[in-house]
Design a protein around this nucleic acid. Structure first.
Length: 460
RNA sequence: GGCGCGGUGGCAGAGUGGUUAUGCAGCGGAUUGCAAAUCCGUGUACACCGGUUCGACUCCGGUCCGUGCCUCCA
């Protein structure tokens, strides 16, 4: 068994992963706020933690991966107002789109996908504990976490309280005792979603949602907490503050999650995705023009902590590389596969070294090449086992490569008759005619390839 | 302003104190009637300046450039 090493944001070091309970590895990753289509950045996080879950599953008997849906939030309320639609219609719509889009890029659903709105009592309970322990206070219908009550605040992001305040560009709300304090519960206006609470009708702050859901579905402490790098501060910092303080563990930051894993950003043609630049790249749009697997491969082609620049060129390169892998698979279509074969050690070593997917991919290519050459069950099975961890190259190669695959725009019988005629011409060494037929097919959008087993065609 | 990250060949992108991945593209060859595909071979790189070292792309310091967070954000 290869030792898994992960860069732990809490210590800033690459550490050997030691499970709390080897019988059940527990992971939490902050999921999307469902008020809009998922973009490629959301997808990166989903793919990375999907792969991490697969790595863990290959080593441990059980993995519980929880990733939530934030279905109550000011942005959702705003979207409802702007579109004049009921909130639950919006959240249901975008939850489904998110899950469909993630499925399209090969992401398995998390084991548990809790809704924030199903966990309001759990949030209220934590808030109550925080008030009881002197870490939170009520002011004008708001409940706030008092940051000075938690001296360890800022450890995850490496930021002192004073530094944040110095850099704060927002006006300090009047109901805050300390400028760094953050909202646990806020009052709702009329027409806004509201739940009864000891502090009046209102709704939870964003950060408390994840604290409550992680605790309820995983128990404390759990093994790994993940999310995008930008969530480190303030979201994850606040989760730590809430969860550690509510349970009287304010001196033990690992009493919430033991390891913190943060993925880097996706940029688009070198720029950060933002609405103002207008370059927010949606998975929903990408899958109209690209295979989901190509998108997944592209997301895995850079190390998860590195920035990944998204461009048509990188997608194109991924597609070409996948084509190559599938062509190698085509060579071994007839070989039996042993599903019990584990992935090669070297491949797992790469993935276990802080999820080094680029290295793993280079090894996967080598494995596919070797399997195509050796043509043994062992080689093929090893390749498939490795590919399965990344959830890459699981399709029928002929289908992926588009060989002789029809759609409405293609008349397969006509193509076959042309190919037969071409074959005839070739046998009679009438190459002028055979080339003429190939050109004709090309104008129809069909390319051909002569193989030892006959001529195959595909749509361009 | 505070905190952080990064600068690798035409492109993408790992990694390492000394033999310098991998893919795509290029070039040469094999194969093919020609293509395509495949196979073999091959060139090009570690921002800059110092330091440590027998030896640094890899460690240390500085410079320049890019970029992220500090406000909702994956």
């Amino acid at each position: 068994m290869t030792e898994l090493k992960l860069q732990n944001s809490l210590s800033g070091k690459k550490e050997i992963f030691t499970p709390l309970n080897p019988e059940n590895i527990r992971i939490y990753a902050c999921g999307p706020t469902v008020y809009n289509y998922a973009h490629i950045g959301n997808a990166r996080m989903a793919v990375i933690f999907d792969v991490l879950a697969n790595i863990l599953r290959s080593t441990y008997p059980k993995v519980t991966y929880v990733s939530n849906i934030t279905d109550i939030d000011d942005k959702i309320i705003k979207a409802a107002k702007d579109t004049k639609q009921p909130i639950n219609k919006i959240t249901k719509k975008y939850t489904k789109i998110y899950n469909d889009d993630m499925a399209a890029i090969g992401v398995s659903p998390p084991d548990i996908q809790p809704l924030a709105t199903d966990n309001i009592p759990q949030m209220i309970e934590i808030i109550n504990e925080l008030i009881n322990k002197g870490h939170a206070y009520v002011n004008k219908g708001h409940v706030l976490f008092n940051v000075p009550s938690f001296p360890e605040y800022g450890k995850l992001s490496g930021r002192s309280r004073d530094e944040q305040i110095a850099g704060a560009r927002i006006e300090i709300a009047s109901y805050k005792k300390d400028p760094a304090d953050f909202i646990l519960w806020k009052p709702s206006n009329n027409n806004e979603p509201a739940w009864d609470s000891p502090w009046g009708k209102g709704r939870p702050g964003w950060h408390i949602e994840c604290s409550a859901m992680a605790e309820r579905y995983l128990g404390l402490p759990f093994d790994i907490h993940g999310g995008g790098a930008d969530l480190k501060f303030p979201h994850h910092e606040n989760e730590i503050a809430q969860s550690c303080c509510a349970h009287g563990n304010k001196n033990d930051l690992s009493s919430f999650s033991r390891y913190w894993v943060h993925n880097g950003f996706v940029t688009v043609n070198g720029d950060k995705m933002s609405k103002s630049i207008g370059n927010v790249t949606l998975v929903h749009d990408l899958i109209k023009n690209h295979e989901g697997e190509t998108l997944r491969f592209t997301l895995l082609s850079a190390h998860y902590r590195q920035p990944l620049d998204w461009s048509e060129n990188s997608i194109k390169q991924s597609k070409q590389t996948l084509d190559k892998i599938y062509r190698n698979m085509l060579e071994i279509s007839d070989i039996e596969i042993d599903v019990c074969m584990p992935p090669p050690k070297e491949f797992m070593n790469a993935l276990c070294d802080d999820i080094n997917t680029p290295k793993a991919i280079s090894l996967l290519i080598a494995l596919s090449k070797e399997a195509a050459k050796e043509k043994t069950t062992k080689h093929k099975s090893e390749f498939f086992a490795a590919a399965k961890i990344l959830n890459i190259a699981q399709q029928e190669p002929n289908i992926w490569l588009g060989h002789c695959v029809c759609d409405d725009s293609i008349n397969a019988c006509y193509i076959d008759s042309l190919l037969q005629e071409r074959q005839h011409a070739r046998e009679n060494k009438n190459y002028a005619r055979s080339d003429e037929i190939r050109d004709k097919l090309l104008t129809m959008g069909i390319t051909i390839e002569d193989t030892p087993n006959g001529t195959i065609w595909k749509k361009i």
